[in-house]
Computed example of a mutant assay.
Amino acid sequence: MTAIDDEPTTPDLDAAEGFLRMFHIAHPETGPVGPRLTQVRDEIAETGTYRHTTQELSYGARVALRDSGWCTSGVPWRRLKVRDLRGFRNAAAVAGECVEHLRLATNGGGIRPLVTVFAPDAPDAPGPVIWNEQLVRYACHADGTGDRRYRGFTDTVRGMGWHAPGTPTPFDLLPLVVETAHEGPKLFTIPPDVVHEVCLEHPDLPWFASLGLRWHAVPLITGMRLSIGGVDYPAAPFNTWFVGSEIGTRSLADENACGAARPVAEALGLDTSAERSLWRDRAVVELNRAVLHSFDLAQVTITDHHAESLHRLSWLRSRQRPTGNRPAFRLDPTAARRARAGGPARFSGGPLETTRPHSPGRLAELLRRHAEG
């Protein structure tokens, strides 16, 4: 991924022109590019930025996802649904629509790839940012229970007023943190009933289910920004579906994440006293088998790493080399630190405000009002 600054900038005319020419080549029915270029140059000269048409936005988001490497095999990128919510700048509205995105994407297990685009950065009005790396992530508690990748994030949101509901477990949902220039960082509790989780069992090991392992169904990535023709959209959540090894190997097995490889190995009766016994490798294989088996049993879309490897090789052979003119999803270092450590804030240089997280009912009310409007 290309690192970029975390501050709004004026769109580069070359980037805007390069994208618009690319768009008009792909959509000849829109007519010659010249009048549109003149319009965009005038708009940038007057306001410091320009607004994509709905068709330009959809095309740019689809190409960005296709070329990013995040587009898993089988995703029909040309028909990918793009939700144009560029009018949303307030934290509560952004949070509510992230939850709605998750609901739509889950689709009863038949995962539906989506992109939701919120307000862009403009010279006088920077867009909102989402701190979380993915919408659904699990907390890490003081005793190390949970996902250790998010120990710092958990500590930060706890200091902002979040508390795990009831007795801490390894799979407590972290709150969503949305930050805006006019509101600062705000916490939102994700409604548990919108998070579809798959309880893991093994095709050959009856005892495996007693480990109590589970994982959420949709990898809704929220920490990357979408760049199209020189315009940056700092909050543009997108999802495809999981590759099994992302769950089994990277999230569950890894000692720096959930650390489930050792309990599985011990239950298998393996010698865990030395790495040379390869106990970890054998445990990871069984974890990955359990993930694929359980998702298939629950009829939740997933792919395996062998199929995905073939897809990635094909993608590497055919993909366009990234340039400043091509749409892209990008992750900057500051956003990466926010996703793991819970800071630094984008707009506030001072201590984070302690706040009471918005309840799941508040998000449900926002969604109800939006649907009625």
Score class of each variant (00 low, 15 high):
Ala274Gln: 08
Asn325Gln: 15
Ala307Ser: 10
Arg149Cys: 12
Pro206Ile: 04
Gly69Arg: 07
Leu268Val: 02
Val177Arg: 09
Ala93Phe: 12
Gly146Pro: 05
Ile44Met: 00
His163Thr: 14
Ala92Ser: 09
Leu316Met: 11
Leu85Gly: 01
Gly152Lys: 00
Ala267Asp: 13
Pro322Tyr: 02
Gly229Glu: 03
Gly69Glu: 10
Arg280Ala: 03
Pro32Phe: 13
Arg78Asp: 15
Thr323Val: 07
Pro175Leu: 10
Glu275Ile: 03
His182Met: 11
Thr167Cys: 12
Pro344Met: 04
Asp254His: 09
Ala253Val: 09
His202Asp: 12
Pro206Arg: 09
Gly31Tyr: 12
Arg289Phe: 02
Gly349Asp: 11
Glu372Gln: 04
Ala328Gln: 15
Cys258Gly: 06
Ala328Thr: 12
His306Phe: 07
Ile221Leu: 14
His358Arg: 06
Val99Tyr: 01
Cys140Phe: 04
Ala283Glu: 04
Leu211Phe: 12
Asp67Phe: 15
Thr189Ala: 04
Leu211Trp: 08
Pro170Gln: 13
Pro203Leu: 01
Gly324Trp: 02
Gln134Lys: 05
Leu65Glu: 05
Tyr59Arg: 01
Gly87Glu: 10
Ser359Trp: 03
Tyr138Ile: 08
Ala139Gly: 14
Glu46Ile: 12
Ala257Gly: 07
Tyr59Val: 00
Pro185Ile: 07
Leu211Lys: 10
Gly69Ala: 14
Phe347Ala: 06
Leu85Thr: 06
Gly69Asp: 12
Arg89Asp: 09
Thr156Asn: 13
Pro351Met: 09
Gly96Met: 06
Ala307His: 11
Gly146Val: 08
Leu278Cys: 12
Pro175Glu: 07
Thr54His: 11
Ala371Asp: 08
Glu46Val: 11
Gly152Gln: 03
Val178Glu: 13
Thr54Pro: 01
Ala257Arg: 07
Ala142Ile: 07
Ser348Ile: 05
Leu176Val: 13
Glu365Val: 14
Trp215Ala: 11
Leu85Lys: 07
Phe238Gln: 10
Leu135Ile: 01
Thr156Phe: 13
Arg103Ser: 01
Leu213Tyr: 07
Pro32Asp: 13
Thr249Pro: 06
Gly166Phe: 05
Gly229Ser: 08
Trp131Lys: 10
Gly109Glu: 05
Ala364Lys: 15
Arg340Lys: 08
